[in-house]
Each structure stands twice: as structure tokens, then as C-alpha cells.
Amino acid sequence: MIESLDAIVNTLASVLLVVLMIPLLLTVFRMIVGPGYADRFIAFDMLSAVAVGLAALTAAITDRREFLDVALAVALIGFLATCALAGLLEKRKGDEE
């Protein structure tokens, strides 16, 4: 009984992994479409959040805690990249001459 419940829960977690592809695709759509740079950077921020979720789900499914390290690393990279992109957006003056 317990084993079968575990199996079902595990399968459902895999289903969630597939379900998470939809937000991923929606965010990628926003990233491609834009329309502005700001929207693309925000889509990137969102993308890193989805990636953290994916890594955490993978950790649960495969039962390997290394994927949680991956989640932390992705969150870290996402934060640094967002900061850098925000700096770019703020400083970039464009062609104003």
C-alpha cells in the first residue's frame, strides 16, 4: 500500500515536471516577443524561477540531493544576471546624438 502510494506520488511529481514546461514556454514566448528590453529581462528573471522549480522537482523525483545544489546555483546566477541586466538597462543611453 505504502509502496504503491509512493509510486503514485513519484509519478505525479514527474507529471508536474511536464506541467512546468507550460510556464517555461509562456515565459520564453514573452522573452522572444518582448516588446521591450525590460520585458525580456523580466522574462529572464521569471525563467530562472521556473528553472529553480524544475531543479527542485528533479531532485525529488531522482532522490538525489545534488539537484538542490543546482537549484541554489541557478538562483544565484539568476540574481547576478538580473542585477547585471538592470545595470545595463539603467546605464545604456542609446543613440542620442
Partner: peptide, 15 residues
């Protein structure tokens, strides 16, 4: 923090 920076940058950049 990242969200605040991005929002500020988006405002300044004229989004």
C-alpha cells in the same frame, strides 16, 4: 532586491 533594481532600471530607461 533584483526586482527592485530591475523596476528602477526599467523606469529610468523609459519603459
Amino acid at each position: 532586491v533584483a526586482g527592485h533594481m530591475l523596476g528602477r532600471a526599467a523606469y529610468i530607461s523609459g519603459a
